[in-house]
Design a protein around this nucleic acid. Structure first.
Length: 638
RNA sequence: GCCCUUGUAGCUCAGCUGGUAGAGCAAUUGAUUUGUAAUCAAUAGGUCCGCGGUUCGAAUCCGUGCGGGGGCACCA
């Protein structure tokens, strides 16, 4: 007779086998109503699952992540049911719950249209209203396979085959419709409620493999209450509002065009932002002991063959044949060029660590479907650096790179940073002893940074382990930006050496690191993080001077000149528009500070400050203004 | 690269079932001289993404190419 232990430690004794419904009922009426599924000794089960022996149990409701998943999993089954009722002959593949929703993959000749989605949604509502019971059956493996073969559900046949031998083949019935599924599911089709919505159709490869057939995937979202659904839709809307492609246009920062897909045409303001980031970075790297170099964009094929890129990365490289038939490649990475700079002249152990930075523009032929605004481009500038050092210097150098990255992210408003550590992959070069050394050196640096980190087993580069720096933006999205890799391979391939204390030639260790990663991508992230409202010091146009009427144009021009001379970027708006119009225009353009100049200001040699997103006004003598804002015109850490 | 979708003025978009284009904003000009998020009026502005086809006639239908968007795959 099972003894049931609840999460709070309380025990209930039943005198017969018991299921989740009965347990919930015993605990409270409200829990009975809210119960969706049950966790039995850590395993998720249907509420109807019979518990025969003593168990620890938790009733799962929509407040639990597992409960939400269960709702979505049920919703996707109901969607598949609706689809097969409306479009007979459609084959079903898989349909899991995902973050914020669910999808189901279908195979069908004709594509689903937006109108179809509406139809499907209506059908789903009917199914929910019928509230038919959901039942689980266990089938013989062979019976299941033969059955699915017979009715032509090829994907289900494959899925049956892929269920491990020690697991049951379970089938869930929602009314008459049924699906091969591990479960668990809610007790009836009505349980999911009515707060779901189908959101989009897209293609998706069967089993995520591009060699396989492309299926039609319908995405949807499902929530326990109207409020949660509305909040979710609102969140999507908010994210769209800060889309850097939209803001980039509105703020006149950059554009893209057909002649060069995936390459940025930077406008005056966008380029100013870009340059501000570069000079900021220069200052930080100067501080951290880097020397900046620059290497050619186009390099002979033979170098890329030697470095391994030609073989390993050839598909992504742009090449160019000269009139005399020589083949060059446009660099997709800066490292080989940097090693060649290192190779000039003999290097001694006394020169190490040697930190060479380069704002190198690289070109990569990315698949057309991967392009996405500034976030995924074909030509971008890396804030790259290569540190040549000895084995013994690895940890310290890694640690200082990590600190530099954190400082820089913090300056730009990203406080939340996590690390992803990837260790040796199966396919790799180098002795295990060297891997031991570089891995432990990297790990030591990570631990010293005291940051949260996750381990991606076997995901390192073929030449060494790596750390990726992931930051979280204002609306909780993660972006992988910086990277730090230990490389014991490339210096060797390209013949880099240094002379050690005993006069022997040794191959140095090379650390690859990028802080922002790509300037272009980072700017995209910055724009979205701040919704375009960049901090004063990094803002491409920091100040707009606005005369109240053209009577005060001369004074406004004077103010503008003085500000520009002080190193703050400023402009003056002399157009024949009224004050309200100009305030609106420049506020929409996200200029952080507007300076209003009228009679009062002329008389007192002052300016009136209006900060973006406030309508408070502050009057200040021009002299004081220049003093105050000059000190704000640099990164917090500088 | 693959699936779906989309491409009209500088921008945002309208243009039903085929009869060679329209609005708002922006621009220009004029009036207005403005004190904290859109002053009024006039003018100008278009290879309807490119190429081919169907048709008496194509922005509209078909094919194809290129670009954009949403996904999938990719992200060394």
């Amino acid at each position: 007779m099972p003894n049931i232990t609840l999460p709070d430690g309380k025990k209930i004794k039943f005198d017969k086998e018991v299921n989740g419904i009965e347990i919930a009922e015993k605990i409270s009426k409200s829990l009975y109503k809210q119960a969706l599924i049950i966790s039995v000794n850590g395993e998720l089960k249907d509420l109807t699952y019979l518990i025969k022996k003593d168990s620890s149990v938790k009733i799962i409701t929509s407040k639990d992540k597992e409960g939400l998943d269960a709702i979505r999993h049920d919703t996707t089954h109901i969607m598949a049911m609706a689809v097969q009722e409306l479009f007979p002959g459609t084959k079903i593949a898989i349909g899991p719950a995902i973050k914020d929703g669910f999808y189901y993959d279908f195979s069908r000749k004709n594509p689903f249209t937006p109108e179809d989605l509406e139809k499907i949604e209506r059908k789903m509502k009917e199914i929910v209203e019928k509230n038919e019971p959901t039942k689980r059956e266990v089938w013989e493996r062979k019976v299941a396979k033969d059955h699915y073969k017979k009715i032509g559900e090829d994907y289900k046949v494959e899925l049956v085959d892929s269920i491990p031998d020690d697991q049951e083949v379970s089938i869930y019935y929602h009314g008459k419709w049924y699906d091969l599924c591990r479960g668990p599911h809610l007790t009836s089709t009505g349980k999911i409620g009515k707060y779901f919505k189908l959101t989009k159709v897209s293609g998706a490869y069967w089993r995520g493999d591009s060699n396989n057939e492309m299926l039609q995937r319908i995405y949807g979202t499902s929530w326990p209450s109207k409020k949660e659904l509305d909040d979710y839709l609102k969140r999507i809307e908010e994210a769209e509002k800060r889309d850097h492609r939209k803001l980039g246009k509105e703020m006149d920062l950059f554009h893209f065009r057909e002649e060069s897909p995936g390459s940025v045409f930077w406008h005056e303001k966008g380029w100013a932002l870009f340059q501000k980031l570069v000079s900021y970075m220069r200052a930080k790297q100067e501080e951290a002991g880097y020397r900046e170099i620059n290497t050619p964009e186009i390099l002979d094929r033979t170098l890329w063959e030697k470095s391994g890129h030609w073989e390993k990365f050839g598909e992504n490289m742009y090449t160019s044949t000269t009139p005399d038939e020589k083949v060059f490649a446009i660099k997709p990475m800066n490292c080989p060029g940097c090693v060649q700079v290192y190779n000039q002249g003999l290097k001694s152990y006394r020169d190490l660590p040697l930190r060479m930075s380069e704002f190198g523009k690289v070109h990569r032929y990315e698949p057309s479907g991967a392009l996405h605004g500034l976030l995924r481009v074909r030509a971008f500038t890396q804030d790259d650096a290569h540190i040549f050092c000895t084995d013994d210097q690895i940890t310290e150098e890694c640690l200082s790179v990590t600190n530099l990255i954190l400082e820089i992210y913090k300056d730009l408003g990203f406080e939340n940073v996590i690390l992803k550590y990837s260790d040796r992959p199966d396919v790799r070069v180098g002795e295990d002893s060297v891997w031991d050394k570089s891995e432990s050196a990297l790990l030591k640096a990570i631990k010293a940074s005291k940051l949260e980190y996750s381990v991606n087993k076997g995901e390192g580069a073929f030449y060494g382990p790596k750390i990726e720096f992931v930051l979280t933006d204002a609306i909780g999205r993660d972006w992988q930006c910086g990277t730090l890799q230990v490389d014991l391979n490339l210096p060797d391939r390209l013949g880099a050496t240094y002379v050690n204390k005993s006069g022997e030639k040794k191959v140095p260790v090379m650390l690859h690191r990028a802080l922002f990663g790509s300037l272009e991508r980072f700017i995209g992230i910055l724009i979205e993080h701040y919704s375009g409202k960049l901090p004063f010091w990094i803002s491409p146009l920091q100040i707009m001077v606005i005369p109240v009427s053209d009577e005060f144009d001369d004074y406004a021009k004077l103010v503008n000149d003085k500000i520009r001379k002080s190193g703050i970027s400023s402009n003056v708006d002399l157009k024949n528009h009224n004050l309200n119009y100009k305030i609106r225009e420049h506020s929409l353009a996200k200029v952080p500070i507007l300076l209003i100049c009228g009679k009062k200001e002329v008389d007192t040699n002052s300016v009136t400050i209006r900060k973006l997103d406030t309508n408070k006004q502050e009057n200040m003598e021009l002299k004081t203004f220049l003093k105050n804002f000059s000190s704000l015109n640099k990164a917090p850490s500088l």
